[in-house]
Simulated scan of single mutants.
Amino acid sequence: MDMVIYPCLVASCVVFVGLFASNEWKTIPREMEEYELGKVSYVMTLVWIAIAWQVFNIGALGLIFEASSLFSNAISVVGLPIVPILAVVFFHDKMDGLKVISLVLAIWGFLSYVYQHYLDECQSKTNDRRTNVVSSASSTGNQ
């Protein structure tokens, strides 16, 4: 949990320092007023984004401990294109070329991971068969 809590705490502190150093905090009430869905929706959006990121971080850390850091990274990469797609669906955001390219690259990266895992598994099975054939041949030769 320390691997999640401390980096998030440091990142939050840096963001707050930047927010107050640039005087951006003065524009937050106006931003809330201009939010189309209202003040409560603005606050709820921010709160649920923060909660979702914490759940994601804990889940990614769990994948690192239970599977591997490579698998955790692959799952993170495949999850990246979901955010722009949901933004297009729910917030009617525009799907521009940059989002399409990032979507294609994320899917390509995940498929490359899956294909490499498949190749490694096939090679492992081939090596196991060879080992079994060699060990059975040597055991029959000893009798």
Results as ranks from 00 to 15, higher is better:
Val4Asp: 10
Ile5Gly: 01
Tyr6Ile: 15
Tyr6Cys: 00
Tyr6Arg: 08
Pro7Cys: 06
Cys8Gly: 14
Cys8Gln: 13
Ala11Arg: 06
Ala11Pro: 05
Ser12Pro: 00
Cys13Ser: 12
Val15Ala: 15
Phe16Pro: 01
Gly18Ala: 08
Gly18Phe: 04
Leu19Thr: 10
Leu19Gly: 02
Ser22Met: 04
Ser22Cys: 10
Trp25Lys: 02
Lys26Asn: 08
Lys26Pro: 00
Lys26Thr: 09
Pro29Gly: 08
Glu31Ile: 04
Met32Asn: 00
Met32Glu: 07
Glu34Phe: 00
Leu37Gly: 03
Gly38Ser: 00
Thr45Asn: 10
Leu46Glu: 02
Ile49Cys: 03
Ile49Pro: 00
Ile49Met: 05
Ala50Lys: 01
Ala52Pro: 00
Trp53Arg: 10
Phe56Cys: 06
Asn57Leu: 15
Asn57Glu: 10
Gly59Met: 12
Leu61Asp: 02
Leu61Val: 04
Leu63Pro: 05
Leu63Trp: 07
Ile64Asn: 06
Phe65Gly: 09
Phe65Tyr: 13
Phe65Gln: 12
Glu66Lys: 12
Glu66Met: 10
Glu66His: 10
Glu66Ile: 11
Glu66Gly: 01
Leu70Asn: 04
Asn73Leu: 14
Ala74Thr: 03
Ile75Pro: 04
Pro81Asn: 05
Pro81Gly: 05
Ile82Ser: 06
Val83Met: 12
Leu86Arg: 08
Ala87Leu: 11
Val88Trp: 13
Val89Asn: 04
Val89Cys: 06
Phe91His: 13
Asp93Glu: 15
Lys94Cys: 02
Lys94His: 07
Lys94Trp: 01
Lys99Met: 07
Ile101Gln: 11
Ile101Gly: 02
Ile101Asp: 06
Ser102Gly: 14
Leu105Thr: 12
Ala106Leu: 05
Trp108Ser: 15
Phe110Ser: 01
Phe110His: 02
Leu111Ile: 12
Ser112Tyr: 11
Tyr115Phe: 14
Tyr118Asn: 07
Glu121Gln: 11
Cys122Ala: 08
Ser124Tyr: 09
Thr126Arg: 14
Thr126Ile: 12
Asp128Val: 07
Asp128Ile: 10
Arg129Trp: 06
Arg129Phe: 09
Arg130Val: 04
Arg130Ala: 11
Arg130Cys: 03
Thr131Tyr: 09
Asn132His: 04
Ser135Ile: 11
Ser135Leu: 14
Ser135Glu: 10
Ser136Lys: 12
Ala137Asp: 08
Ser138Lys: 15
Ser139Gln: 13
Thr140Ser: 14
Thr140Arg: 11
Gly141Phe: 13
